[in-house]
Design a protein around this nucleic acid. Structure first.
Lengths: 283, 283
DNA sequence: GTCGACTCGGGTAATTCGGGTC
DNA sequence: AATGTCCGAATTACCCGAGTCG
């Protein structure tokens, strides 16, 4: 995808003159490509990267096909949470997406957005549900809104290099949670990896098949809900034995309890996205 | 094997206008041959060489894998299904998205894309799986790719008017299929409706709650998989009785068998997206 | 030979270029 | 030092009736 913007579009979006954008391109501050005739073309992710680096506000995101700003200019992660909770309970998918795009273009990392904004928001919604203050459908509708936001976020991340290592992963049988998988995928892409999301509720046999077919550098398991730990542990052992040498495995998710952790040898157990992020940096 | 591309095909592949490609051919920037009638034909080698020389990224590499005999639009329409099957089996989420975007910008409606391209593609993948020619993970990974394509497609649809009628819906308990839900949502938005996707695997009580809270003009049930018809029918009766007067209900999906259909009074039973589309037009 | 889809070429409107100046 | 504005020249995108392709 990765749309190509003219200097004028880029300038409009960040609220500066066209000349400034051209100068920044010429100075190398914004990565730029050229047409045969010598016209500059800026990829969306290059512009977002510049905005993040320079802490410049995206004044008019709509001119480059992004949702309008959420109205708050100074974002603090903590303050985003109650606002997100509100929007999710109201079912405002657009509002949710705006917050995510705002946070990312303001320089927050994907793992920060996941760990410090989305996860706490769903925790709060869960608490409200426990007190009878929120309905199930509100939580689910909120998940759908966040899924959409994460799809948009993914498009803002730089394209992985053609020779970047490949990561694949998903959730095992009985686990239908998509949100954590999309978050993991986004974190990996943020670190420059190529990714393929296999999906949720996958039988272990097909995961073994996938890992042997693709021989990825990394495989992730997102564990949000485990009906029965025992069959999973047996499955995991089978998987682990069938693993190609070059493949590292990471495990994470709410369902990764201490007793599971002890019996699942792997390269890294992650409690939060930031653990994954640190692990990726350490490679 | 050295295919000859039309200017239009080349333009699509590298993401510029057809005029530019023709100009560059005329300027000698791209080596070109001519048909007896004077039409330009660009060899694959020439295009690749040009791409290398100018450092220009190939926006849609999959476009140049096509036969020389027809134009892109025609080709996209005719050959979309086998091409999509290939891309999905390979796990090319970007390729899948390109096809969907091409189809939509070639004038195909959302329901046509769903009914005539995506559904047959998954049918074929299912058939291949039945013969042992495809793995489960390939089908699931393909679903994820299509989900992403549908999110992008949704962004291409015009924003609904502020006073547009509201539609909400989702899947009932035991049904985890997201793809049909996203398709239904896209069809509704194509017809100018506001939508809220509630999600999958939803208990009937929360659907009743949702429909009473929001009082939408329309409520959709996407039925892809029903573990037990009987509890569903009982649930549906409860739902139907609790319905606000102004709310129409539509039902659709693979699991909508004749015996289910008979016992589910509603405004419309849909076998395909086009049925939903027609129904929306008739309102 | 018919026909629909595509391409031709040329013209025009809109953008972008680079450089100089404020 | 950095930004915004202005300029003529060049580039690109879009449009159209006529002709070609499959």
């Amino acid at each position: 995808m990765n749309r190509r913007l003219t200097p004028r579009q880029a300038a409009l979006a960040i609220g500066v003159s066209e000349s400034s954008v051209k100068r920044w391109c010429d100075d190398g501050a914004i990565p730029v490509e050229y047409t045969v005739g010598g016209h500059r073309r800026i990829t969306l992710d290059a512009l977002i990267g510049y905005v993040r680096q320079t802490q410049r506000p995206l004044l008019r995101p709509e001119v480059i096909g992004l949702p309008p700003t959420s109205g708050v200019t100074q974002w603090v992660l903590d303050r985003a949470v109650p606002r997100l909770v509100d929007l999710l309970l109201q079912g405002s998918a657009d509002g949710c997406r705006s917050i995510v795009v705002d946070l990312y273009s303001a320089g927050k990392s994907v793992s920060e957005i996941g760990d410090q904004v989305m996860a706490p928001a769903f925790k709060q919604i869960g608490d409200r549900w426990a007190c009878g203050e929120a309905h199930v459908y509100q939580e689910r509708r909120g998940c759908e809104a966040c899924l959409r936001a994460l799809h948009t976020l993914r498009d803002l991340l730089p394209e992985p290099a053609a020779d970047a290592p490949l990561a694949i992963g998903g959730s095992v049988a009985g686990d239908h949670y998509q949100l954590p998988n999309l978050m993991v995928e986004a974190v990996l892409r943020e670190h420059g990896w190529q990714t393929q999301l296999l999906g949720t509720n996958l039988p272990i046999e097909t995961l073994i098949q996938a890992v042997q077919d693709r021989r990825p550098r990394l495989f992730w398991f997102s564990l949000s809900h485990l009906e029965n730990p025992l069959p999973f542990l047996a499955d995991y052992r089978k998987f682990y034995e069938a693993l190609p040498e070059e493949t590292l495995v990471v495990l994470g998710g709410r369902a990764l309890l201490p007793e599971i952790r002890e019996q699942t040898p792997c390269a890294k157990h992650c409690d939060r996205l930031s653990d994954l992020s640190e692990f990726l940096k350490s490679l």
